[in-house]
Design a protein around this nucleic acid. Structure first.
Lengths: 144, 144
DNA sequence: AGGCGCATGAGAAGTATTTGCAAATACGGA
DNA sequence: TCCGTATTTGCAAATACTTCTCATGCGCCT
């Protein structure tokens, strides 16, 4: 999993900050993290890391294809581990909870549309904004 | 079109800055503008306006449903006139050119997916990033 | 173990956007 | 048409997020 070899194979030295950041994404249940999330969590683990380093590492990992960057609605970028298979997102407007989905037909039509217009599609992002049904969602929390 | 009544009907005083901003969106061929675009264009028209005001007005118009805000790929938000009918966007990664499209089937499947999971969909954004075919696109401009 | 060179941390610098505030303005009433 | 007042505006300073600068530190090859 989180072995130095992983990093070295992609031309990056296996430094402590990089190992820790990668580990965080691999072992944490919350899969979408902002730079600040990562920074705070590592600081909490007594790891001496700088916010600038977090940003640098996230960018490097993204370029290396290890992480994927999203923007959802807010100003801040969130990163998730690149699990290999593409998916889109359903984001709760109340609590920020994110669910993933994949729809063959939607993908197909996207490609068709781009093709019809002579565009060479590189990438796409599809976000559905809604209210989720989790108990933790403030929308459902009974007043008080 | 750009009449004071439009603004008054939505509870906003028909001030010069607001009229001018609205006019810009209604009469300009480029339909997706950033706050800075709007600011610069009005300054060029000899209109004394502050950037802060542009931001405030854009926000007010968005809340009033007159404009729609998008984020596309970059950090900066772009606004477009709310023409009433929803559409998604195809964005050129090279020149920033934006084309709009609408696909009944994609919309249908989005709703279906949200429904299946018990989500109440509020909104969605679908962006296809690709290379466009316009002559102006730097990708096609034969090297110098 | 030793040394070169990339990587790091801290803070400054940059963007994009928001806010505080005094001066300017819209607009209904006189 | 002129006023009063509540809004709105422009400016500058403040935020929020991200990137850059640079002196120091650490990974990695020998």
């Amino acid at each position: 999993m989180t072995s130095p070899a992983n990093l070295k194979n992609m031309g990056l030295k296996a430094t402590l900050p990089r190992l820790k950041v990668l580990e965080l994404f691999e072992h944490h249940e919350k899969q979408h993290l902002t730079a600040d999330d990562v920074y705070r969590m590592l600081i909490n683990e007594q790891i001496d890391i700088g916010l600038a380093t977090v940003y640098r590492v996230l960018t490097q990992f993204e370029q290396a294809g290890l992480l994927i960057r999203h923007h959802f609605d807010s100003e801040k970028a969130v990163y998730e581990l690149n699990a290999g298979q593409h998916h889109d997102h359903l984001v709760c407007l109340q609590c920020g909870h994110v669910e993933e989905f994949y729809d063959e037909e939607i993908e197909r039509r996207q490609n068709m549309i781009a093709e019809q217009r002579g565009f060479a599609i590189h990438d796409h992002s599809l976000h559905l904004y809604a209210d989720c049904k989790r108990d933790a969602c403030p929308r459902r929390s009974p007043h008080k």
